[in-house]
Design a protein around this nucleic acid. Structure first.
Length: 329
DNA sequence: AATCCACGGGAATAGCGGGACG
DNA sequence: CGTCCCGCTATTCCCGTGGATT
């Protein structure tokens, strides 16, 4: 039933046609257009909730630019590379030599200088999930390199700006802003139709696609993975409503699983505890953790861990300060 | 108003990998 | 080769802030 697996890889696949993001794509193209003449483009911030095509739009726009201009491009996911060194390394690697650099023994400044010296032509860097970045001053330093154009992607614009100091903030406030909103059901249906055409051997009725779109609540990642799961389940090539209803929770679980697999051991035990013992406040949570994990992390460290889990949408922090409770998702 | 509990920024510190130098 | 030093990362320590409770 599935002709091309990669069409359903929501992290990397860029569709042949990008639909329902024409407006956003135009804004991006305009921001990048000076590069056609060899000048630097405008820095751009793409925001919006998860699964609304932020990454795909950015990648699509940059790929388009590559066909028209002499430009270097790089995509960096800051969830994986939130540490300054790794980030700078990935930015340097397409343009300069990195093999003589040794982990942790080269200063940030050395990397920055080398980036500065290595850029010869316009260079567009997509920084995905940029709110995860440890040191926002880095953005300031990168912004100061004239050839470099940054596309920042985040689902929490306020939090990104909150951690920036004013100097950095003002640089980016004046850049281009692109906001992607949730998809409507009919938009999701059309997106799914595209994936059906590109990735499946058989057609799927519009009614079924609508049902998937409905369940996905505006999130294209969930919708696409649900379609994929349903197609896997339907061995005879016919997608029924029953199959869809089974596939959607599977897809959601799978997406969640994918993020939690990137956690470190102490973070997963913490997640287990929160999931198992329901809404917990800090005072209740720590004894449980100490009991379970055997290591004695401080309350402060646990707060940091919980913050991270919340950022990954694995737990939810309800309420503020004193009344805060953590719930597993 | 006073106390409690928790949040989260930032400084200090420990540990690690790796180069430089004798 | 052994020692020293440097820079990054993770963790703890310290502390000002602020909502909730009494």
């Amino acid at each position: 039933m599935i002709a091309r697996e990669e069409v359903f890889d929501v992290d990397t696949f860029v569709p042949a046609d990008l639909i329902h993001r024409n407006h956003e794509l135009n804004l991006l193209s305009t921001a990048l257009s000076p590069i056609l003449d060899g000048n630097p483009g405008s820095n751009t911030i793409v925001t919006g909730p998860s699964g609304v095509g932020k990454t795909t739009t950015a990648r699509y726009g940059v790929a388009q630019l590559e066909t028209e201009a002499d430009v270097t491009t790089q995509y960096v996911n800051c969830w994986d590379d939130h540490r300054p060194w790794a980030l700078l390394h990935d930015i340097l690697s397409p343009i300069g030599k990195v093999w003589d650099l040794h982990r942790q023994s080269t200063a940030h400044d050395v990397l920055l200088t080398r980036i500065r010296e290595s850029v010869e032509k316009p260079y567009v860097v997509i920084l995905d999930e940029v709110d995860r970045i440890d040191d926002t001053d880095l953005l300031y330093s990168l912004d100061a390199i004239p050839e470099l154009t940054l596309i920042l992607i985040t689902n929490r614009e306020e939090e990104l700006f909150a951690t920036m100091d004013e100097r950095v903030h003002s640089r980016f406030r004046s850049g281009v802003r692109i906001y992607c909103d949730h998809y409507s059901v009919s938009e999701l249906v059309e997106i799914l139709q595209g994936r059906v055409r590109e990735g499946l051997q058989y057609g799927v009725t519009e009614g079924i696609l609508e049902r998937i779109a409905d369940h996905a609540a505006g999130d294209a990642r969930v919708a696409i993975r649900s379609l994929y799961r349903a197609a896997k389940l339907a061995t005879d090539g016919v997608l029924t409503t029953d199959v869809v209803d089974e596939a959607v929770p599977m897809a959601r679980g799978e997406l969640r699983q994918k993020t939690s697999s990137r956690l470190k051991p102490h973070e997963s035990t913490l997640l287990e505890i929160v999931r198992e013992h329901g809404p917990l406040k800090m005072g209740e949570l720590r004894p449980l953790y100490l009991d379970e994990a055997g290591d004695d992390r401080t309350a402060r460290s646990l707060r940091r861990d919980l913050r991270k889990l919340a950022d990954y949408n694995l737990v939810e922090a309800r309420g503020e300060t004193n009344g805060r409770r953590y719930v597993g998702l």
